[in-house]
Design a binder for these strands. Structure first.
Lengths: 157, 157
DNA sequence: GCTACATAGTGAAGTCACTTCACGATATGC
DNA sequence: GCATATCGTGAAGTGACTTCACTATGTAGC
């Protein structure tokens, strides 16, 4: 006996597209991880930096909400980031329970570098995709993402 | 003082595309994890099942290579899968060091269900994308992935 | 002003995916 | 045969998560 799926898979037109999407997501993820590791970061920690970079100083709770993780987890992420001098915890001016987290100067420049890396990558990646085709591509991407989100709350798989 | 990046970001045309790509990758990843969790699996374990489904019975070493992880890690993944009765380890017929891993019947049907879920998702996701546009989309996806792979070995970020 | 309750952050403990290193059992080249 | 490479696994460790319990503080309501 051979493998368990001897019958050829019935062709589903969109399957190839989804598979390519997964493939790209995987390669992209690996690449991002590598890039971030070169700066001594992990993707989770970089995500926290990124959120602070774009959202400005905020409470740990806010950060947790924004990252979609538990407050407890944010504590750990920040411990590491603080250890590396990328982030500071200060007293919240009005709420003495809360902590205000900000990027240090070093944290800001590391995150800027991350952003520049992203832009470089983007430019490089789409360099030989003609502009009109890129527009269509991006639009489709957005459409599919939107679709996924609406379906996501009760869909299959 | 406000945040550390008061100057507006210089527009890089491809940036929006990359960002959307990341966004989709994230949502897609979350959705896949959810779907796989519904069947009592994790993405790593599902990946192992998937590899066995498509590659047929193989050695743990081979599986490790295919998954791109350490042999030691495969041991752990298989321990869990075996515990759930999805996989069996048998003696290798000619090499007594090696173990031959195969899907059980249960493992096969779970993986089939995974595949069906994928197809459903694909169909659903691209339902309202016209065929010609989908073709272009998929081609661009492939092109970018290829690009990423060649660049990946020495690129920035 | 006090009591009741919600909220902010963290310790403790646990899960899962990974890794490296060391080791025993086997295969293989010469 | 013997050196050497390979197969799988124990031990130990890291990182990202989670839940649960607890302290300190804010916010009503009366």
């Amino acid at each position: 006996m051979k493998s368990l799926h001897d019958m050829p898979e019935r062709p589903v037109p969109a399957r190839a597209s989804l598979d390519r999407l997964f493939e790209l997501a995987e390669v992209l993820g690996a690449m991002m991880q590598r890039g971030v590791a070169e700066k001594g970061l992990t993707t989770a920690r970089a995500g926290a930096l990124w959120a602070l970079f774009h959202g400005g100083p905020m409470t740990q709770r806010a950060l947790a909400t924004q990252l979609g993780v538990t407050p407890r987890n944010v504590t750990g992420l920040l411990d590491a980031l603080q250890e590396d001098g990328l982030v500071v915890r200060e007293a919240h001016p009005t709420d003495r329970r809360a902590t205000l987290v900000s990027l240090t100067e070093k944290g800001g420049s590391v995150t800027s570098a991350l952003r520049d890396g992203r832009d470089e990558l983007a430019a490089l990646l789409f360099a030989d995709v003609p502009a009109d085709r890129l527009d269509t591509f991006t639009a489709t991407l957005a459409q599919v993402t939107e679709r996924l989100r609406t379906v996501g709350t009760d869909g299959p798989k």
